[in-house]
């Protein structure tokens, strides 16, 4: 989904915003005053004043709601708390990364084991030092097609989206797949995976979380921030990934907490 549509979504959400859903209980409006000091108020104004008050309250309430959801919500959606998206292809991390028994059945009808692929097999830039290593890049389509040109049944509709994009079937071999990003830090944060993986690999006692996937090498440390991705059918964000979390961890591990470490 592109940005415009996303914006529209939120706009519509805001349009539907109803007062009763507010987490703040509104106090009962006082009875309309009939006198303001000694001045007799016109009747219409008497009815308008409490309405105006209501509006003001609603307004403040809306802002409060906004602040609260923005502050406590995940960084991706501010209004609404959804934690995952439908991706263009339902990519199951379980099948690829897990080492456990799965509910899936393979083409021959046997129950599948997870493949137990190392995270860096696909997200191969993640433990590199340079700028490209800042993000766990999603691999190119034809990287996927290396296997899925052969693996997977021909009538697998999900895989056919991939094969189409890679030009194995269909005519058009040039359009990439627009994956939606799940873990996104604010724009003013420059996060680089590599030093974190390097440190946690050397200091495994600081790893948090567990993984169903490979527990050796760089894959072992991912769960600290990303949770048990190997057990996820659809990836969602587990940790809030707020600055406090970053700073706490940096302090615990005596990593620099200079602003310019992450913000530049």
């Amino acid at each position: 989904m592109d940005l415009e549509n996303k914006n529209k979504d939120h706009k519509s959400k805001l349009g539907n915003f109803k007062l009763p859903k507010l987490p703040i209980k509104l106090p009962k409006p006082p009875p309309p005053p009939t006198h303001l000091g000694d001045v007799e108020l016109p009747k219409t104004l008497m009815y308008l004043l409490p309405v105006g008050g209501l509006f003001t309250l609603a307004f403040v309430g809306a802002i409060a709601a906004f602040v609260i959801t923005a502050w406590w919500g995940q960084p991706i959606p501010v209004l609404g708390f959804e934690q995952t998206f439908d991706q263009p292809i339902n990519f199951p991390h379980t099948v690829h990364a897990s080492t456990k028994q799965l509910d899936y059945k393979d083409a021959d009808g046997n129950t599948m084991m997870g493949l137990g692929t190392d995270c860096t097999f696909c997200h191969r830039t993640v433990n590199k030092t340079t700028a490209a290593g800042a993000n766990a890049y999603i691999p190119p389509v034809n990287f996927c097609a290396n296997c899925h040109g052969v693996i997977g049944t021909e009538d697998n509709s999900q895989l056919n989206i991939l094969r189409d994009a890679a030009g194995i079937i269909g005519e058009d071999g040039t359009s990439p797949i627009n994956w939606r990003r799940v873990h996104r830090l604010p724009d003013h944060v420059r996060f680089v995976h590599e030093p974190h993986i390097r440190y946690l690999s050397a200091n495994p006692e600081h790893i948090k979380g567990e993984t169903d996937g490979v527990s050796t090498g760089p894959s072992a440390v991912c769960s600290t921030c990303h949770g048990n991705v190997a057990s996820m059918e659809k990836v969602y964000q587990v940790e809030p990934l707020k600055m406090r979390q970053c700073v706490d961890c940096h302090r615990d591990n005596e990593a620099p907490t200079d602003c310019a470490t992450c913000h530049h």
Binding site: L14, V126, T130, A132, P140, W179
Partner: peptide, 29 residues
């Protein structure tokens, strides 16, 4: 409310390219 935001977002749209860009495979700029 949402009129003017999202500026830098487009620049970071996650897009898995079709071909292998050299830098991607090597994981370096």
């Amino acid at each position: 409310i949402f009129a003017a935001c999202g500026l830098p977002e487009k620049e970071l749209v996650v897009q898995s390219p079709v071909g292998y860009p050299e830098d991607l495979v090597r994981g370096e700029d």
